[in-house]
Design a protein around this nucleic acid. Structure first.
Length: 443
RNA sequence: GAUCCCAUAGCUCAGCUGGAUAGAGCAACUGCCUUCUAAGCAGUAGGUCACAGGUUCGAAUCCUGUUGGGAUCGCCA
């Protein structure tokens, strides 16, 4: 959600943005996934599989994939050796997972232009190995070498053994130690693939890259930035936005996520409970690097108090004013072109001046938020703007001459409607950046 | 042992890249619906900006150190 809003923000401020989703479909984890799916496949064929063995994924989410496999292949895979079914089941399981992920993303209003497969780096259409190519390129430039790594200070891992390995000279680019590229089993490290992936981005012409990671990967930032420098000869930049892990609470108690115990809660569950607008606004109404405490009970019970409604209500009020103005002056032209001729000098009240000032800040707020890569600023700006509008609106209760629609004064109403039309656009645009809907009315 | 992030009101968080009496929401208390939507407004109360130094005309903001919390630390993903 953070990345989606940031991309919206950058696009809205005039930058050329491409949103990519990096699919981790390589490495040992997908083989585990495939074996787990194969187990569900046997289950779907009627076998009793008992407890899911240690080392495989126990989640129920693979059951549909297993059933689909059974439907597509019958019992034909069951007795074959693993080497034969693994590639097939793996591809099938990856597709099933991606289907699920796409569904989750859609439910949260998150869109991507590109889904980039990690597997394609080593197994491209023409069979080329981009990871190998990058390593060789860097080796030729002396940035990759074979050497030894000192063990970490403090606690020594019990299985530590000194060995010679292929290393990336990330210390030349600001990292603390050099980083290995090839595992002891000869496979590439995750980092090696990541270098190739970012190289691919650079080659495709992306000079300003932004990665969005979970905070548990914080130790990874320096080496990735080092790699981007190396791979682009310092031309490209990489900003890594770390989103803190959500600490899920229920009635003040931390919720332990256990799939077996049925206490596993996904963001999608929350979205389905309280609505995508409320969740998105809540997630974006804070800095990305601050830990988010997410009390499930409170979120659901107090969803009425979510600040998103405050802002959406402000937008709805603006729409209401325009409807009322049309009712009072049926022939009033509320198009942007017509309203641009309104006499804004008639807006002399301090509340109106305050609103006008805030409206005028919108472009600068957008620019500042975009430059800092901080979409939450937009959310806070909108909240301030909504506050100013609600406040001014209520002054019309005691002072009827301040109401937006004045049936005696067509010129004044026109000027006020012009301002409200701008407000409407700002609310709609700002909420659009956050990926939150801007309803015409709330009842 | 090392690196990264965080510490602001009882709670959840802002603080526009160094400016004047540090702000909002929730919780508490007091008012406002025959009038454009009360999902709203006005007000009261609540803070030694973790602590100690430093830079500066000026620091919640920048630097150093300390404490407390979180994350990470060859080949995991």
């Amino acid at each position: 959600m953070f990345g989606d809003a940031l991309a919206n923000l950058l696009a809205f401020s005039g930058r050329n943005v491409t949103r990519e989703y990096y699919i981790n479909d390589a490495g040992a984890q997908v083989d585990v996934l495939a074996r787990s799916a194969f187990l569900r496949y046997r289950e779907a064929l009627g076998e009793s599989i008992g407890e899911i063995p240690e080392g495989l994924y126990p989640g129920d989410y693979l059951k549909p994939a297993g059933a689909a496999l059974a439907k597509a292949h019958g019992a034909s895979l069951r007795d074959k050796p693993e080497a034969e079914w693994l590639p097939l089941v793996r591809a099938f399981a990856i597709e099933a997972m991606m289907e699920m992920i796409r569904g989750d993303l859609a439910a949260m209003n998150i869109r991507h232009e590109v889904f980039f497969s990690e597997r394609s780096l080593t197994q491209g259409a023409a069979g080329e190995d981009h990871v190998r190519a990058v390593i060789e390129d860097l080796r030729a430039r002396g940035i990759v070498y074979v050497g030894h790594l000192a063990p970490p200070k403090g606690q020594l891992p019990d299985d530590w053994e000194d060995r010679e390995q292929t290393l990336f000279r990330s210390t030349d680019f600001g990292d603390d130690v050099d980083r290995p590229l090839i595992k002891s089993d000869g496979g590439y490290t995750y980092f090696a693939s990541d270098i190739a992936y970012h190289k691919s981005k650079v080659d495709r012409g992306f000079d300003d890259m932004i990665d969005v990671w979970g905070a548990d990967h914080g130790g990874y930032v320096k080496r990735m930035q080092a790699a981007v420098k190396a791979v682009s000869n310092g031309r490209a930049s990489l900003d890594v936005k770390l989103c803190q892990l959500v600490k899920l609470m229920r009635n003040g108690e931390p919720v332990t996520m256990s799939k077996r115990a049925g206490t596993f809660v996904t963001l999608r569950d929350v979205v389905e409970e309280v609505g995508v607008d409320a969740v998105r606004f809540m997630m974006l109404f804070r800095k990305n690097d601050a830990t988010l405490e997410f009390d499930l009970a409170k979120v659901i019970e107090q969803s009425r108090e979510n600040p998103v409604f405050y802002v959406q209500y402000a937008h709805a009020r603006c729409k209401s004013v325009i409807r009322q103005a049309k009712a009072a002056f049926p022939d009033l032209d509320v198009s942007a072109a017509a309203l641009s001729g309104a006499d804004l000098a008639l807006l002399t009240d301090e509340g109106e001046a305050g609103l006008a000032k805030l409206i005028a800040q919108f472009p600068r707020q957008i620019d500042a938020a975009a430059a800092a890569h901080e979409p939450h600023r937009v959310a806070f700006y909108l909240h301030d703007l909504a506050s100013a509008l609600h406040s001014h609106w209520n002054r019309g209760k005691d002072q009827p001459h301040l109401r937006f629609v004045n049936e005696e004064r067509r010129d004044l109403t026109t000027a006020r409607v012009a301002m409200v039309a701008s407000l409407t656009r700002v609310f709609a645009s700002g909420l659009g950046v956050l990926g939150v809907s801007a309803p015409d009315e709330m009842r």
